[in-house]
Nucleic acid binder design. Sequence first.
DNA 1: CCGATCTTTGACAACGGTTCTCAACAAGCG
DNA 2: CGCTTGTTGAGAACCGTTGTCAAAGATCGG
Lengths: 131, 131
Amino acid sequence: MAARMTRQRTAVVEALDEMADFRSAQQLHEALRARGESVGLATVYRALQALAEASEVDVLRAEDGESLYRRCARREHHHHLVCRMCGRTVEIDGPTVEAWASKVAAAQGFDDIEHTIELWGTCADCRAAAR
Amino acid sequence: MAARMTRQRTAVVEALDEMADFRSAQQLHEALRARGESVGLATVYRALQALAEASEVDVLRAEDGESLYRRCARREHHHHLVCRMCGRTVEIDGPTVEAWASKVAAAQGFDDIEHTIELWGTCADCRAAAR
DNA sequence: CCGATCTTTGACAACGGTTCTCAACAAGCG
DNA sequence: CGCTTGTTGAGAACCGTTGTCAAAGATCGG
Ligand SMILES: [Zn+2]
Ligand SMILES: [Zn+2]
Ligand SMILES: [Zn+2]
Ligand SMILES: [Zn+2]
């Protein structure tokens, strides 16, 4: 279980690094193919889940259920504000909510608390463009 | 588009009313079949999406992507604290987060803000049972 | 009631994202 | 180099969900 470094794995990481916003496994796969650095789809999925496991990428569920991946600048726990039109992403830091979430859950006798907090909106650029 | 009242639709609503926790379409379908009030699976899906559309039920995405439905007591906007083992659900009211979410998003110049906030944990009963 | 109309139903096929399979392949190592 | 063992990839399988379309039934004017 040595986690070998292969052409495919580095290719996926590089592709992610060039993407500013959340992308699906299939979009990554397509992007790799387009640049000639072809990688099997199953391999892209495996690489992404390994990266997610290691907290190297963040995962987000689109409304249709598809998983979206992003290599965030921040390594620590954080949340996202995502433009639902163009995908522009802002990393959010929420000490307020963190405290709120664990307090509320503990008050109900729950343990091993996790939370899903994502913000969706329309960014200034998209609003201007839609005018 | 008159929304006719049929045996199947009332059956789905009744089943939901008897369920305290979030349930999948397939679980509902099975429950209906078990009680003899059989309804086609596609019909269960259609009834649920109509109810969700009308804000009569809340929809939640499980970690594996499956959609879960629940008829909450509260009709107004709220969130949920869900036991990831047994599904026990507590409705959560978060004036704190509501304010935080819109403030943060506005500060980034985003509009039409929506948020997804769900809490997951292990309830006291399940923790005791797992001992 | 009765039949015309038009929505709803349900068995089954199709869909789409994700995971599995397994033989061929290639890191890493001495 | 060869060996060992993790990795790859084409295609099949999986599974929740949605589409199909002929048959069933809710609604209503007459
Ligand atoms: Zn935008
Ligand atoms: Zn958090
Ligand atoms: Zn529980
Ligand atoms: Zn809220």
